[in-house]
């Protein structure tokens, strides 16, 4: 019989305070997608190999499939839903750059790619190509090819720098 002992966890998800109950074995992936309906977080390998379940934990990317839910107590979680500009014509700079550069094809890895790019650009507004490749190295894309994605991040960085200068 499965154990039903519940653990109370509080965290901030995309700027909103959440109080939930989870089991000791629950992953953050299961909690986000099944309990909290953040559908941008995708299921992939469940082993930390493909990266499509990436979310930002206190501003840094982590694999949600490897993160126990109880471990995020008191933390800030960001998913693609938290990027400002949810409307079609009001996209975040990274989202705009991905669209302009055709940096998505099937789109399955795109939320994770965008979050990893965001984490990089928050810390390093002017990254080199190698730094972008390193930042995206934990997410697999099986259809676009990586160059349009790298170019999109370069463009997003430029757009964000220009915005800051204005």
């Amino acid at each position: 019989m499965l154990n039903e002992t519940r653990i109370k966890v509080r965290f901030i998800l995309n700027g909103e305070s959440r109080n939930i109950e989870c089991m000791a074995a629950d992953t953050l992936f299961d909690t986000l997608r099944d309990s909290l309906g953040t559908m941008s977080v995708k299921q992939g390998c469940d082993f930390g190999g493909c990266g499509v379940c990436s979310v930002l934990l206190d501003g840094r990317p982590v694999y949600s499939c490897l993160m126990p839910t109880w471990k995020v107590e008191g933390s800030k979680i960001e998913t693609l839903e938290g990027l400002k500009g949810k409307e079609l014509m009001n996209l975040d700079a990274i989202q705009q750059a991905f669209a302009t550069n055709f940096a998505q094809q099937c789109g399955y890895c795109t939320p994770a790619m965008i979050l990893n790019a965001k984490a990089l650009l928050e810390r390093n507004p002017n990254p080199s190509v190698d730094q972008i490749k390193d930042a995206l190295s934990g997410v697999l894309c099986r259809c676009t090819g990586y160059m349009p994605i790298v170019e999109a991040v370069m463009q997003a960085a430029m757009m964000r720098r220009k915005k800051t200068q204005v």
């Binding site: 154990n3 002992t5 653990i7 089991m23 000791a24 074995a25 629950d26 299961d30």
Partner: peptide
């Protein structure tokens, strides 16, 4: 929703 496949082989009851 619980990952039943995982819970069949991993079902800890507490975190110390």
């Amino acid at each position: 929703m619980r990952d039943l496949e995982l819970n069949m082989v991993f079902d800890p009851s507490e975190v110390l």
